[in-house]
C-alpha cells in the first residue's frame, strides 16, 4: 500500500521534472527575438481586430506601425486621433490627424416609396442576390435590404429597420471601420465626416438613371434636376450621371440644397428645426417629373 503511494509520487515527480527540463531547453533553443515595441503598440490599439485600418488585425497593424518609417498614412479609425497620438508618442513618429467620420446610408428607398416589382427567392444576402439581378425594386442602385452591412458590422452599430427595410447606423457606436462599406455590393454606405453634434447633409440616393425613370422606381430618388447645384453657394455639389453628390470637404452645412430638392432626396441629420416659417411640402406622390436634359 505505502509502496504504491511512494512509487506513484516518485514517478509523477520524475515525469514533471523531465517535462519541465524539455520545456526549458526548447524555449531557450527556439527563442525568437521580437521588438517589444510591437507588444506595446498592440496594447494601445483597441483590439477589435476589425481590419478597418487595412491590416487583418490589430497585431499586424502594430507590426506595420513599428516597421514602417512613415506612418502618416496609417490610421486606426476605431481608436481615432486619441489612440494615434499615443502611438505616435510611443514610437516617436509623426502621424496625421484625421477628422472623425461616420457611416451613412445613402438610400432612402423604403418599402413605401420604392415599391417592390418582383420577389427574390434565395439566400438572404445582398452579395448573392446582387449576382442574380438588380433587386426586388426597379432601382438598380439602391439598397437590396438583405443586411450584409449589418452582418459585417462587428460593433453592433447597425440594424435593419423593419418598417423601412433599410439599414440604420447607430452613430454613437459606429467606429468608422469601414467594414459595411466593403460589404455592400451596391456601395451605398459612405464614410462622411462627423461634424459637431453629428450634423450631416448628404444625398440619400445613388440612382444614375434619368429623372423620370428614377422617380418611377422610387419617389425619393435624385432626379438630377440640378436645383441643388444651382443654389449651393460653395460649389460643393457635383452633378454626374444624373446624380448629385455633396462633397463634404466643401459643404458648409447651410441646408439650402435640402430646401430646394423637389424629391426630398437630400438628407439632413441632427439639425435643430428651422425657425423660418416653412411651407411643408407634402411628399409628392405621382407628380409627373419632366426628365432633365442630360448633364
Amino acid at each position: 500500500m505505502t509502496d504504491s503511494i511512494l512509487n506513484s509520487v516518485i514517478l509523477l515527480t520524475g515525469l514533471g521534472i523531465v517535462a519541465a527540463l524539455v520545456l526549458y531547453v526548447v524555449s531557450k533553443k527556439f527563442y525568437v527575438y521580437e521588438n517589444p515595441l510591437i507588444a506595446e503598440v498592440e496594447e494601445l490599439l483597441p483590439g477589435a481586430n476589425c481590419a478597418g485600418c487595412g491590416s487583418p488585425g490589430c497585431r499586424s497593424f502594430a507590426e506595420k506601425l513599428v516597421s514602417s518609417d512613415d506612418i502618416a498614412n496609417l490610421f486606426c479609425p476605431v481608436g481615432g486621433n486619441a489612440v494615434m497620438k499615443q502611438v505616435s508618442a510611443a514610437l516617436g513618429k509623426e502621424i496625421a490627424e484625421q477628422d472623425p467620420t461616420v457611416a451613412v446610408v445613402r438610400c432612402q428607398g423604403s418599402c413605401e416609396v420604392r415599391p417592390k416589382t418582383s420577389e427574390y427567392q434565395g439566400p438572404r444576402s445582398c452579395a448573392i442576390s446582387a449576382l442574380i439581378y438588380s433587386g426586388e425594386t426597379d432601382c438598380q442602385y439602391g439598397c437590396l435590404g438583405d443586411g450584409d452591412c449589418v452582418v459585417a458590422c462587428k460593433f453592433d452599430a447597425m440594424y435593419m429597420d423593419e418598417e423601412t427595410g433599410l439599414p440604420v447606423v447607430i452613430t454613437d457606436k459606429c467606429t468608422s471601420c469601414g467594414m459595411c462599406v466593403t460589404a455592400c455590393p451596391r456601395g451605398i454606405i459612405e464614410m462622411r465626416p462627423k461634424h459637431k453634434r453629428d450634423l450631416k447633409i448628404y444625398v440619400g440616393c445613388l440612382n444614375e438613371e434619368k429623372g423620370g425613370i428614377a422617380k418611377k422606381a422610387c419617389s425619393v430618388a435624385c432626379i438630377g434636376c440640378s436645383k441643388c447645384l444651382d443654389i449651393c453657394p460653395k460649389e460643393a455639389i457635383v452633378m454626374n450621371n444624373n446624380l448629385a453628390y455633396i462633397d463634404p470637404a466643401y459643404c458648409t452645412l447651410c441646408r439650402k440644397c435640402v430646401d430646394v430638392c423637389p424629391t426630398h432626396s437630400i438628407i439632413e441629420t441632427n439639425f435643430p428645426p428651422r425657425k423660418v416659417k416653412q411651407e411643408e411640402v407634402p411628399v409628392i406622390k405621382v407628380e409627373p417629373v419632366k426628365p432633365q436634359p442630360d448633364a
Binding site: G122, P123, S125, A127, I128, L131, I132
Partner: peptide
C-alpha cells in the same frame, strides 16, 4: 438547400 446559389457566389468571390 440553395446549393448552387452559394457555389456561384463562392466562385465569383
Amino acid at each position: 438547400r440553395p446549393l448552387l446559389d452559394y457555389i456561384r457566389f463562392g466562385k465569383s468571390i
